[in-house]
Amino acid sequence: MSVWDQVVGQEAAVAVLRAAVRNPQAMTHAWLITGPPGSGRSNAARAFAAALQCPSGGCGACPACATALAGTHADVTVVATEKVTISIEEVRDLIGIAQRSPSQGRWRVIVVEDADRMTERTSNVLLKAIEEPPPRTVWLLCSTSPQDVQVTIRSRCRALGLRVPPVEAVARLLIDRDGVEPDVADVAARAAQSHIGMARRLARDPDARERRRRTLELVTGIRGVGDAVLAAADLVDVAQAEAKAATEDRDAAERAALLHTLGAEDATRLPPALRAQVRQLTEDQKRRATRAQRDVLDRSLLDLLSLYRDVLVLQLGADVDPVNVEHTDQVRRLAQDSTPEQTLHRMDVIGETRTRLAGNVAPLLAIEAMAVALRPQDGRVGA
């Protein structure tokens, strides 16, 4: 099984990366791998990193491939931030690592997921390292779009664009790799709109499917301002609970590990010299929780957008496969009780809410405003 097998539906991009592995003339020191959410940017970057270290160009079976894909290869460094932005300190650490010669493999590979989360100041710190890298250092930057990365950075990288993989390819991956039942795999792949990570989570996690169902039922339960306010509060509470569940155990383990390292696990009161380190950890954990909540809310809004997308497809009679195949009755009811213009307006409202959340607007206020705008205007559900 090749390392490229997990790069689903990206035959053209894989051909470019394979050529770079085989032919030094096609290789470059910095790559910018872009594509919409779920296209597999991170998978492509990790597979490329493994292939660069593999004597056979990505066999998938040797120790170099296995450790590179697992994130444990000594010469492959992966940065996947869980905070809102990538800090300057993290980038400076990467620059230091990039200056070292490979210790085991053929290349020193630095993978930066979510490179668009670097601020302008942080990008400027990285610029010189990308301009003048050591001979055997390769930077792999991942982002949703080239425009999301500072122009000074992207102008020095070779661009590689990925596309949204076909639903059938994602479903087949879930069946072959994760042992998911075909019917469940197909529903999950469609509901996730070919987002590989989300499809895998929906296929394997009943709680995730239940959260999605509750989100989609939000619009049909809104009949007035009061319902909208309650629905918004419920949606935000669900996001907070999911984000807390995802980070709580890890936060506690990190705090316990830090206190143990500092020799203060049994201390009832920390000495002043140690408080700064604990305070820094707490601040990092808060930023991680903030991003986790934003990510959950954004996924919920994407689910709502997919519902109204199906409604619009039905209203216009378009010959397009639905996303929410298990919510056909709800889609039909919303299509009957509204016009295409109203549906487009609701989709615009949800898109604006995503923009507000990305701009750090208080989640409850943003979701309340959205829910109020989604309510029926003439007493009919979905009208």
Score class of each variant (00 low, 15 high):
Asn360Trp: 01
Gly263Thr: 09
Val381Glu: 07
Ser2His: 02
Leu274Phe: 05
Pro165Tyr: 11
Glu254Ala: 13
Ile175Asn: 00
Arg190His: 09
Val381Tyr: 08
Ala70Gly: 15
Asp348Ser: 14
Ser306Pro: 07
Arg92Pro: 04
Asn324Lys: 01
Arg172Asp: 12
Thr328Asn: 08
Ser143His: 03
Val111Met: 03
Leu301Pro: 10
Ala256Arg: 04
Arg354Thr: 11
His29Arg: 08
Ile33Arg: 00
Ser338Ile: 09
Val14Phe: 12
Gln147Ile: 10
Ala68Asp: 09
His345Gly: 14
Met198His: 15
Arg309Leu: 14
Ala371Val: 07
Ser39Gln: 03
Gln240His: 07
Phe48Gly: 05
Leu32Arg: 05
Val79His: 01
Ser338Glu: 11
Ala192Met: 10
Met118Arg: 00
Ala30Phe: 04
Gly263Lys: 05
Ala159Thr: 05
Leu297His: 01
Val236Lys: 00
Arg201Trp: 12
Gln193Cys: 13
Gly379Asn: 09
Ser101Thr: 10
Ala51Gln: 00
Arg275His: 08
Met118Asp: 03
Arg375Lys: 15
Arg204Ile: 13
Met118Ala: 02
Asp75Lys: 02
Arg354Phe: 07
Met198Lys: 03
Arg309Gln: 13
Val180Cys: 12
Leu301Thr: 07
Val79Tyr: 02
Arg211Cys: 12
Glu217Gln: 14
Arg346Lys: 14
Ala257Leu: 06
Arg200Asp: 15
Ala366Trp: 01
Leu314Pro: 06
Lys244Phe: 14
Gln150Glu: 06
Gln147Cys: 08
Pro36Glu: 08
Arg136Cys: 12
Gln104Met: 11
Val219His: 04
Thr67Ser: 11
Val21Lys: 00
Gln240Phe: 04
Ala49Phe: 00
Pro133Ala: 08
Gln6Lys: 12
Gln377Cys: 08
Val381Trp: 07
Leu302Gln: 13
Leu173Gly: 03
Gly263Arg: 01
Arg211Leu: 10
Ala129Phe: 04
Leu334Trp: 15
Thr122Glu: 07
Arg18Thr: 15
Asn23Leu: 06
Val349Phe: 05
Asp5Lys: 12
Arg154Gln: 06
Thr137Trp: 01
Ile222Ala: 01
Trp139Tyr: 10
Thr137Gln: 11
Pro37Glu: 14
Ser300Phe: 06
Leu174Gln: 01
Gly58Leu: 06
Ile88Lys: 11
Val219Lys: 10
Ala252Met: 08
Asp337Ala: 07
Ala231Val: 13
Thr77Met: 04
Asp114Ala: 09
Thr85His: 03
Ala191Met: 06
Arg332Tyr: 03
Leu307Asn: 03
Val180Thr: 14
Gly197Arg: 15
